[in-house]
Design a binder for these strands. Structure first.
Lengths: 336, 336
DNA sequence: TCTATTTTTGCACACGTTTGTATTTTTGAA
DNA sequence: TTCAAAAATACAAACGTGTGCAAAAATAGA
């Protein structure tokens, strides 16, 4: 491996000052066309690559955006990651994706890395674990703009892109009620997270509006796996309080439920109504087709990026307190 | 926002030289315990954060690993990304994920970014588009170690973690043959990519060994979507040459096939045998359960990271030409 | 108390780039 | 040919950190 070539190397080789080389490379009009061409040719031939560490040390603006998600291996997030990456690419930004693995500690360390590397901005959906938001205050302090999406820190004044979880869960629950279901369970995540709290509130509000009564209808879980879905459903069925319908916050859990209904010959939608959050790849294949609440990933990605870009280019152009709410969609299929 | 605090600020505030501060922060034994504690306390109180751009400019080693995948929004890759990220975190590395979006051009620009930011190493699976491998030579030239996994550049001398695509596809094909299927189609990706070429070879070898004859059995496609799966299968069925079995390289395509078989009342496995590559989230739910070739994501992630770490810590410790081959698994279910 | 040794701190430069200012070279008009 | 203006280049300092070496301070031994 050859040592990497620098501006000074080019300058020495061409017998000009390195400041001229710098200007030539950046197409500064002050440098003579001939020397510029000379420099560019030399740079290309020797595969010169800017040292961005030096550039950024100097304080020049950069185009690096960090994206933090709890779990890349989850179709909701991987969809958004994928879309955001393409969006950013078109606008000349480079996105680095970080996974917090649902851990506050990892999220915090990622934020530190972001500060230390001087990213231009951050788009983030927080970990389930995250109750303390000091690390986002740190980000604020260092003047790095950031935008939350989906899972947010409500006590931080930064733009947020939210999903209408309250309304859609209310509608979904009411739909089940109108279909005649009476013992409607809600399986969801920890209500410390705004997403699950909103869904919970939507569910409860509908239940109360229609004066349904049903004990312990809510199962809160930390993990979203198919195995756990099996277990939760089995426990529900084995309890005194078998539900006749379920609204489930996770596809993976829903898969477990489906597995158990097959095993136990519980018929959907006759014995059990079912609505799940999230887009199922196999939704058209699985029988019966499951009603679902589809997330507007594209809109979330676009809006998040748009807000961050505004913040990066002009921090004052944006009313920071104004949250954006995008609509998810209740698609009724055969499961209720 | 306050201006970020630097080592020099701390030095000035504490009336000592910044070199002492630097040493104190890095627990250098040459600095007095008292002054070190003083510095650390001050740093913590004022939330000092290293400027990694300065550190790296200086040439100190760093712990940033770049991971390039064609598409994050694909369970095979997102699985590996997720696992690699966690693995790296435990070892004190930070992983930035980049998505090439299956485009050579984007891949190239990502490589440039990686060079410009001086990453410590790279783990990469190349885009479908990538035929030219000059950008990897560039990486070599700049002395940044890298490891390929799954989709590789065969003309580049860097460690590769491969899947036994030839053997497993051979086995799968032979299994179908032994089950009595005679017109076995293969739906796969462009054979410029080693993965699909190996599968293709495995398939062909089995077909030839058993002296089967069947015209135009191979469908090559660039995109892996359910919609395309529907179309490809429809075309096959409508052609003179309807297959009685299919080995399909993509879950998404397989979903399309399944959809069409339902629509056309084609019975699996009676009318059509089916084996798909990839792990289906819903594999236990879909009826009939689809036989599949499951990818060893965990092993791929572990091996790739292990190889890269060796390269980073000691470039000579590794025989670069030695490729690792991990085994995928043929799981026979009800579809053949 | 004085010197030799050890411990602690300070100094100065380097990493690669950018940019305001000074200097040199070129150009054009008289 | 001469001189002012314009164009092109050179100079120098700065960004924040790390490190070899020199200097100073503290310690120990006689």
């Amino acid at each position: 491996m050859n040592k990497r070539i620098t501006i000074k190397d080019i300058a020495r080789e061409l017998n000009i000052h390195h400041s001229t080389v710098s200007r030539a490379l950046r197409n500064d009009p002050r440098v003579n066309e001939k020397t510029r061409d000379l420099v560019l040719a030399f740079a290309q031939e020797h595969e010169y690559q800017t040292n961005l560490n030096a550039v950024q040390l100097r304080g020049t603006a950069n185009n690096a955006i960090a994206l933090i998600v709890p779990n890349i291996n989850h179709s909701f997030f991987s969809d958004i990651v994928s879309k955001l990456t393409n969006l950013a690419y078109e606008k000349g930004y480079v996105i680095s994706v970080f996974q917090s693995n649902e851990k506050y500690l990892q999220e915090k360390e990622i934020i530190n890395t972001i500060i230390q590397h001087n990213f231009a901005g951050v788009i983030v959906s927080i970990a389930k674990d995250t109750v303390n938001s000091d690390h986002f205050r740190l980000l604020e302090k260092f003047g790095i703009p950031f935008v939350f999406f989906d899972r947010v820190c409500e006590d931080i004044n930064s733009p947020k892109v939210l999903v209408n979880n309250f309304e859609i869960t209310f509608s979904a629950t009411e739909h089940l009620i109108n279909k005649g279901y009476k013992r409607i369970a809600h399986i969801t995540g920890a209500t410390e997270i705004n997403v699950f709290r909103d869904r919970h509130r939507g569910y409860i509000t509908a239940i109360q509006k229609h004066e349904l009564e049903y004990k312990n209808p809510i199962v809160v879980t930390d993990e979203f796996t198919m195995e756990l879905g099996k277990k939760i459903f089995s426990d529900l069925v084995d309890s005194q309080n078998t539900p006749d319908a379920i609204i489930c916050s996770s596809i993976h859990l829903t898969m477990g439920i489906l597995f158990e209904t097959r095993k136990r010959a519980i018929s959907i939608p006759t014995d059990l109504g079912l609505i799940t959050f999230g887009n199922i790849l196999a939704s058209e294949i699985i029988q019966p087709q499951i009603s679902s609440i589809e997330q507007p990933e594209t809109e979330i990605a676009e809006l998040s990026f748009e807000l961050l870009e505004k913040l990066i280019t002009d921090k004052n152009s944006l009313n920071i307190n104004e949250d954006k709410v995008v609509k998810s969609q209740l698609i009724i299929r055969e499961s209720c």
